[in-house]
Design a protein around this nucleic acid. Structure first.
Lengths: 223, 223
DNA sequence: CCAAAAGTGTTACAAGTACACCCATGA
DNA sequence: TCATGGGTGTACTTGTAACACTTTTGG
């Protein structure tokens, strides 16, 4: 029995959530989009395979990586029985590989909203759907959203990210009020120099150590 | 690469949470306790393997079954590289196979509290720990606890179950108040004839259809 | 001077939590 | 008659949700 891993890598930039996909060079599913992934070697565990394959195939280092689900439908791979352990990952935009949207490059960031079932190889569309569902739930109660933003971000950016990922507009005032309660989201007293108009928002940073301390004291993340 | 499934089957009776385990007849780990499970056949998907193996090895039909996690540590099986897709399951006490605690039967229900790491084969202790963690979290926001009780139960029984699984005493009054809010936990106006002393508690039943309707209307389960 | 982004507070309502006493029954 | 289990209500605190206006700045 063959065993592979597949990774749903999410990237976010300016109100758009993207998935990292590969254009397949060979059959089956030649020239269709597919998740990066590959066979598990005898000497590595699944998580290591994901990290290795992402590096080899896409040159991306992820900031967050979590096992999603193992898909084992009998006929999911026309080449023969193959089980895949799916992962999902988040990457910080500063680590985006140069996006070659214009030409037919092998690796592309594809906006979630433009994904179509029929463009995707294997059962990868279903895997992506599964990953989005997980992400939407998990981003509410684990501080993983920060892995989709630059290290320094304004609370408005954070708010926009959440509204995008979750799929509806959260009340900005309540959201920011909530975020400010959390000591591990620290204001830097520096201001966003990229903002085009209006007031320059204060930059914030997620402090992992402070978060771990707060967690030990029973303080939960919630947005 | 070999691929197996393993199942952590939980059973509950009278304030005790049990796991279904097998005493191994052969090496490796001969005569130690192990999770029921086995190799995935070419013609079945993982979930089917679990159901089949549970039937074959333990004669148990489960009421709830969910994939847990896939364990792929390289040396987790001394016989050679083996990945296992772990599941966890809940069974209704009425479906308990006759428990042969007295003799050295092949299948046993073992109380969670009496489990010891060194009595368990492979990485199965870790898998069980993982399953308990999942169960404790999930029982709070999905109505899966009912699969550990008889069809008809008193709210006190439900309360005792929850306190046992979660590991601390929940306030009985608040718990029952909460349970009564939920229309899909219906009072049967029949009374528990098994109760030994005191008032006979009213029997209740979980109504799956009503629950599904409530869920569609955005009413969430929470206990 | 106007459009766009950032920042901020209050109030009403719902939910959660803490807590204590009475009743029925069988031993 | 008493020990055990079942049943119930209130007050307090906290959290959530709804909601609008002002400031700054670049074009």
């Amino acid at each position: 029995m063959k065993v592979t891993v597949d990774a749903v890598v999410f990237g976010y930039v300016e109100g758009v959530l993207n998935v990292l996909l590969i254009k397949r060079k060979y059959d089956p599913f030649k020239s269709m989009l597919a998740l990066p992934g590959g066979y598990i070697l005898e000497t590595e565990r699944a998580r290591e395979t994901v990290i290795r394959e992402l590096k080899e195939e896409t040159n991306v280092d992820v900031d967050y990586l979590e096992q999603l689900y193992t898909f084992s439908k009998v006929d999911r791979d026309p080449r023969g029985r193959t089980i895949t352990i799916a992962y999902y990952a988040l990457v910080n935009p500063s680590k985006f590989t140069i996006v070659a949207n214009s030409d037919a490059d092998a690796v592309e960031w594809v906006a979630l909203t433009s994904l179509k079932k029929n463009n995707l190889a294997f059962d990868h569309f279903g895997i992506i759907e599964y990953a989005i569902t997980r992400l939407r739930i998990k981003i509410r109660y684990e501080p993983i959203g920060f892995d989709l933003l630059p290290k320094d971000f304004t609370l408005s950016q954070l708010h926009r990210l959440y509204s995008t990922v979750i799929g509806f507009e959260i009340d900005r005032r309540n959201f920011i009020k909530q975020a400010k309660k959390m000591d591990f989201i620290v204001g830097l007293k520096k201001y966003d120099s990229n903002s085009k108009r209006g007031v320059k928002g204060e930059l914030h940073r997620f402090d992992e150590k402070k978060y771990q301390k707060a967690k030990k004291n029973g303080i939960n993340f919630w947005l």
